[in-house]
Write a protein that binds this DNA or RNA. Structure first.
Lengths: 167, 167
DNA sequence: CGACAATTGTTGTCGTCAACAACAATCTTT
DNA sequence: AAAGATTGTTGTTGACGACAACAATTGTCG
């Protein structure tokens, strides 16, 4: 799909007229050498792909991966404080404020002032939020099938197993 | 290490005196439910961990993952244009401009005006850049050993194999 | 009990990063 | 030669992580 480099790109010091030198730089043929074999690079590229597919698949309902994770955790654990959600998801509490502002504005989440600890808020899904989350989960499952189609069913399971420690 | 939630956090509508309900919300014990089983979530958490370790391991030389990937590709393919590097790494050419500005300022990279195509620049490592990259590669290898220690040698290899398609 | 420390939610700043849009200079195509 | 495409550049926007500071509230400890 990306048809960018369809001719030689660099001005090689060697003779450029020959066909041998040109083929080397043909699109997608640039050597990565040391980069291959780096787990971080492969994981980064894969993470970009998987997030883009998630965003695309859930594009119709305008839900991003982080929003989805927040809704899921609140749905599974009603009454959590913002700190609890932030810690669980590895999000900063400062950032969660804006996420919840948005989700509350869209009537998916309620902040209820806790009476046990008047500093904190108990987070709950609204009725609207529950039905919406159910729909999001169906779309997320569809996204997950895209992942399966991309790397294979057994590879996906193996990968989940390898990375289970990062929950 | 993070001892944040050491008591119940939410004001559960159910009776709160019992021990059963309280244990459920104990630190790090919050259910993720549907989130587990999502490849994207596990990959995101892992990617964050791996990048932080990379940044920490290469912290002494002040090289971030993206900078490392740029240097590696240029080192392996001298004379590439900015577009070629950007396409190969999945970076936007607009973003690569700043990356190269920084690397050129630190005398690791040279932009040489191409005579074949006067719009483009041929990218090369300086002599200083070559010796520096050799050092970076040693540190990157050390980082890779951290990954092995984290997920296991055979798991790392399997993971690289699974994600090989994302180069 | 009362001073002091810690926690929670909030606001703000800073830097990284992806996605676009616009532009001048320079090819390529026709 | 004119029209279109490409390259490098600058700029904007928005998501995101890392910090710092603050008021309100709670916990601790002398």
């Amino acid at each position: 799909m990306d048809r960018a480099i369809h001719r030689e790109t660099g001005s090689l010091p060697r003779k450029r007229a020959g066909n041998g030198a040109a083929r080397r730089n043909d699109a997608d043929q640039i050597g990565l050498d040391a980069l291959v074999g780096h787990a971080g690079y492969a994981v980064r590229r894969f993470q970009i792909w998987i997030f883009q597919d998630f965003i695309k698949t859930l594009g119709g309902v305008d839900i991003r991966p982080t929003q989805y994770s927040v809704l899921t955790v609140i749905g599974a654990n009603p009454g959590l404080s913002q700190m609890a959600v932030a810690n669980r998801l590895g999000i900063e509490r400062a950032r969660l404020v804006h996420l919840l502002d948005s989700l509350e504005q869209r009537k998916y989440v309620k902040r209820i002032k806790s009476k046990a600890d008047r500093r904190s808020h108990a987070l709950h899904l609204t009725a609207q939020g529950e039905t919406a989350l159910a729909k999001f989960k169906r779309l997320a499952a569809e996204h997950e099938r895209h992942v399966e189609a991309k790397i294979g069913k057994e590879n996906r399971e193996r990968l989940l197993q390898i990375l289970a420690g990062f929950t």
